[in-house]
Amino acid sequence: MTILLPNPGGGVRAYEPRPEPLGFTAGVPLTSRTVFSAAHVVADPYADTTPDSAAAVDWDATLAFRRHLWSHGLGVAEAMDTAQRGMGLDWAGAAELIRRSAAEAKTVGGAIACGVGTDQLTGPATLAEVRAAYEEQLALVESTGAQAILMASRALAAAATSPDDYVELYSHLLRQASEPVILHWLGPMFDPALEGYWGSSDLDAATSVFLDVISAHPDKVDGIKVSLLDARREVELRRRLPQGVRCYTGDDFNYPELIAGDEAGFSHALLGIFDPLGPLAAEAVRVLDTGDTPGFRKLLDPTVELSRHLFQAPTRFYKTGVVLLAWLAGHQSHFTMVGGLQSARSLPHLARAYELADGIGLFPDPVLAENRMKSLLTVHGVPQ
Rank of each mutant, 00 (worst) to 15 (best):
F296E: 09
L173G: 02
V76F: 01
P348S: 07
L4R: 14
W327L: 03
V141W: 03
L22N: 10
R99H: 09
N371V: 06
V76T: 13
E129D: 11
Q137K: 05
D164L: 09
L241H: 12
P21D: 09
P163H: 05
G27F: 04
E234W: 03
A14P: 13
P19L: 04
L69W: 03
D219V: 09
G291T: 02
L325D: 03
S307E: 12
G250D: 07
A353Q: 08
E283H: 04
S143Q: 11
I214F: 04
V130M: 11
S267G: 14
S143F: 02
V167N: 15
K220D: 05
L173C: 04
M337D: 10
D202M: 06
W59V: 07
E263C: 04
S171P: 07
Y354V: 01
D219C: 05
R345L: 05
L356K: 08
D119T: 13
L138Y: 01
L186D: 13
S208P: 07
R345C: 00
S171M: 09
P51N: 13
D204C: 04
Q120R: 14
R175F: 09
P19E: 09
S375Q: 12
T49G: 05
F65A: 00
A313F: 15
E257N: 07
H40P: 03
V379S: 14
A284P: 05
T336Q: 15
D365Q: 02
P279G: 01
V285Y: 01
R240C: 12
I360K: 06
Q120E: 13
A79Y: 08
D81R: 01
D44V: 00
G340Y: 08
F24C: 10
A193T: 15
A64V: 06
V35N: 07
A94S: 15
L258F: 04
G196N: 14
H72R: 04
F190H: 15
L140V: 04
Q384F: 08
D204A: 08
T82D: 12
G250S: 13
G123Q: 14
A353G: 03
M87A: 15
A152V: 11
A132W: 12
D60C: 00
P294N: 05
G223N: 10
D202I: 01
M337E: 15
L356D: 12
D48A: 15
P29F: 01
G187D: 14
A94L: 15
E96Q: 05
L174G: 02
E142T: 07
T50N: 09
E129V: 06
G361C: 02
A103Y: 10
W198D: 14
T336E: 12
R240Y: 11
P348H: 02
S267P: 09
T293S: 02
G339R: 15
Y15K: 08
T126N: 05
P8Q: 05
